[in-house]
């Protein structure tokens, strides 16, 4: 991500939050305005590669043969109506589905070329490399400091107290929360506002230096101003992290992502550069969804 492109998107993204009601058309116009930049042209390396991934909850199949490449250091958005399997697929990427009783995943998922279901790759290690931010902010019932220090502590990332403090500070800074909480690091994390809590959760994920950050509708429980802050943050974070975001809001997908994948009824319908998906989708179902005809 170059400075040039960030400055291109920003003046347009900010007024977008204010006019969220009629934003579907605007977002496609936004797409038209910046057709020059596509991830394919920038030729980013593939970080996560999924082939024929299917998920079953007991006898019910929730996801059908999804294959997708997720590029490094960019934001990939998964959109689609509720129950379309986008969150299910997201949770496959760090094997969070393992924690659900009766859930079975088939197919192949590679992180930097190695199979995440491989026996040599420990799931703990995988989740340290693929962090996750959840729909509802879920800070632990601990202090703000302890929340961020939790990951580095369990993975032994800091050798001394001052090093740990350094990690906590830089994580909070990168989550643009430091200025707001630096004077009350030892107060409980649950006392923050919803938006601050979600940024705390992002800081917590960043603190273990993952390669990929998965975000499952990170703004759905937040008000528009907190949402704007998180979106800004996502835009900055993509310089260092590969971000996959599930969102219900097409405007959000258009604002923050470089690539978009549209899921419907457990299938990956279409996937490509965000601009293309929003301006000239190949599939009729995608077209219908982004213009609000169903969903």
């Amino acid at each position: 991500m170059t400075d040039l492109s960030t400055s291109e998107t920003k003046p347009e993204t900010i007024p977008m939050h204010m006019t969220s009601g009629s934003a579907i058309i605007e977002s496609s116009e936004l797409g038209k305005g910046k057709t020059v930049r596509t991830p394919d042209k920038e030729n980013r390396p593939v970080r996560v590669k999924a082939r024929d991934v299917s998920v079953f909850y007991g006898p019910k199949q929730a996801l059908f043969d999804v294959s997708i490449d997720i590029p490094a250091k960019a934001v990939t958005a998964f959109i689609g109506p509720s129950g379309c399997g986008k969150s299910t697929f997201l949770r496959c990427l760090n094997r969070m589905n393992d924690t659900i009783e009766g859930c079975r995943v088939t197919g192949q998922i590679e992180l930097d070329g190695s199979d995440i279901h491989d026996r040599d790759l420990d799931v703990v290690e995988l989740r340290a490399r693929v962090g996750m931010v959840f729909q509802k902010p879920n800070p632990f019932p601990k202090s703000i400091f302890e929340n961020v220090a939790y990951g580095p502590k369990i993975h032994g990332l800091a050798r001394s107290k001052s090093e740990l403090e350094g990690i906590v500070e830089s994580s909070l800074r990168r989550a643009s929360l430091w200025e707001e909480v630096k004077d009350r690091l030892h107060e409980p994390g649950t006392g923050l506002s919803g938006g601050q809590q979600q940024r705390l959760c992002i800081a917590r994920a960043i603190a273990v230096s993952p390669e990929v950050i998965l975000m499952d509708e990170p703004c759905s429980a937040l008000d528009p101003i907190a949402t704007a802050k998180i979106e800004e943050l996502i835009d900055e974070l993509k310089q260092n992290f590969t971000i996959v975001i599930v969102t219900h809001s097409m405007q959000q997908a258009a604002r923050v992502s470089q690539r978009t994948a549209f899921f419907h009824l457990g299938n990956l319908v279409e996937e490509g550069p965000t601009d293309t998906i929003f301006t000239s989708p190949k599939e009729k179902r995608t077209q219908d969804y982004i213009t609000g005809r169903f969903g």
């Binding site: 760090n94 969070m96 924690t99 703990v124 290690e125 995988l126 989740r127 340290a128 962090g131 996750m132 959840f134 509802k136 879920n138 800070p139 632990f140 019932p141 939790y150 990951g151 369990i154 993975h155 959760c201 917590r204 994920a205 273990v208």
Partner: peptide, 18 residues
């Protein structure tokens, strides 16, 4: 204890007992 709390910790790579 909300499932979100458990998921949050597991999602950071903590083991079950941690």
């Amino acid at each position: 204890v909300p499932r979100a709390m458990r998921d949050g910790s597991l999602g950071l790579g903590a083991t079950k007992s941690e």
